[in-house]
């Protein structure tokens, strides 16, 4: 709240008699909490990073050299939505969901069925895939919501394999072959900007939600679910609401991918959709929502470069995950935010 000082931990060995101190910038204190913002400088300080994010994403497609990298941006956008979904569920609802691939699969097949069988126009299919898919995911995982921590994680991780197995064994929904062509967006600019707009809506929308009363109840469930029950609120119902909101992002990703590739098949349940978002979330900064998105936007192109090396991609995720957990557990965005708000100086002790 105030300009608290804090000694740096570890890092470089401090010279005798001196110590590195971190101080909050005066502006940070002025622009948060009880104070009112009343100068251009303060407004810029607050709005600057947000504006940078919006403008950066807006010009990004224009800066890409060719169609190939524009396609990579689309895929990265889908992963970024999954990363945001993971971050929101893990840090604001207390559900560690390791089953992103189940969301892409359910969202993808739901949307794909509308387009492929019923010839519904793609924007409506994607919308239906997102909303109905999220409802379906929530319904299917409803019985597992009382499970805690690792048990919920394991269960959600198994679901994509289960769904894939059912489709392959019964030969339904295209079985091993998959179904196509699914009439898609078929315009790279629409494909790029659709995912960018949805990303911005997801990040800013969720960041706003977690600060509002409904979001505070969700966070309450994460912090202390017994106190929430003692306050006359059903924990299961609250978690279900949170899961539905988180699944919207994941199911959109699946619905979008189907209309990007003009194809739907069991690859929608691929384990990459479960794992990469977690690495991205850890790398970008847990609990920041925007950080995991940035993480995915960095990690996906990197993994794309390694496409020729097959399984090496998994090694990349693993290395990023382990590296950040060990050396920078706060993640990129938390680190950047700290640098933005604080300065360091040496003081005598």
């Amino acid at each position: 709240m105030t300009g608290a000082t804090e000694a740096t931990a570890g890092a470089s060995p401090a010279p005798e008699g001196r110590r590195k101190e971190r101080l909050d910038r005066g502006l940070k204190v002025r622009t948060e909490g009880l104070y009112a913002v009343n100068s251009y400088r303060e407004i810029t300080y607050l709005v600057g990073p947000r504006l940078l994010l919006i403008l950066g994403l807006a010009v990004l497609p224009l800066l890409l050299p060719n169609l190939y990298w524009q396609r990579v941006l689309c895929v990265a956008g889908a992963y970024a939505l999954l990363a945001i979904s993971f971050d929101f569920l893990a840090n604001y609802v207390g559900l560690v969901c390791v089953g992103g691939a189940f969301m892409t699969g359910v969202g993808g097949f739901t949307a794909g069925i509308f387009t492929y069988y019923l010839h519904v126009p793609w924007p409506i299919s994607i919308l239906l895939g997102t909303v109905l898919g999220a409802a379906l995911v929530t319904l299917i995982w409803l019985p597992s919501l009382p499970l805690r921590g690792i048990y919920f994680a394991i269960l959600t991780f198994m679901f994509p394999f289960l769904a894939r197995g059912v489709i392959l064994a019964l030969g339904i929904l295209g079985g091993t072959e998959g179904l196509g062509p699914v009439a898609g967006m078929d315009n790279i600019w629409i494909e790029n900007y659709l995912v960018i707009v949805v990303l911005l809506v997801a990040v800013f929308g969720l960041r706003r939600l977690v600060g509002e009363d409904a979001g505070i109840v969700l966070r309450g469930v994460k912090d202390n679910d017994m106190a929430v029950q003692a306050s006359g609120i059903s924990v299961t119902r609250t978690k279900a609401k949170g899961l539905f909101i988180g699944s919207l992002a994941g199911c959109f990703a699946g619905a979008y991918i189907v209309h990007l590739y003009n194809f739907m098949g069991t690859s929608l349940f691929a384990t990459d959709y479960s794992i990469l978002p977690i690495a991205a979330a850890v790398m970008g900064g847990s609990g920041t929502l925007a950080g995991p998105m940035l993480g995915a936007l960095i990690l996906t192109p990197l993994s794309e470069l390694l496409r020729g090396f097959g399984q090496l991609r998994v090694v990349l995720y693993a290395l990023v995950l382990v590296g950040f957990i060990l050396f920078k557990p706060e993640g990129l965005l938390n680190w950047l935010t700290r640098k933005y708000h604080q300065f360091e100086k040496w003081t005598k002790v």
């Binding site: 009363d213 409904a214 505070i216 109840v217 966070r219 309450g220 912090d223 202390n224 017994m226 106190a227 929430v228 003692a230 306050s231 006359g232 609120i233």
Partner: peptide, 27 residues
């Protein structure tokens, strides 16, 4: 309503925001 002998407030929230949970309840 009851208190808990072992107190675990919603640590990441300001004190008054802790009361938003019961204040949002159906009751």
């Amino acid at each position: 309503a009851r208190t808990f002998q072992v107190m675990r407030p919603y640590a990441t929230l300001a004190a008054y925001k802790n009361l938003i949970v019961p204040l949002s309840s159906p009751r």
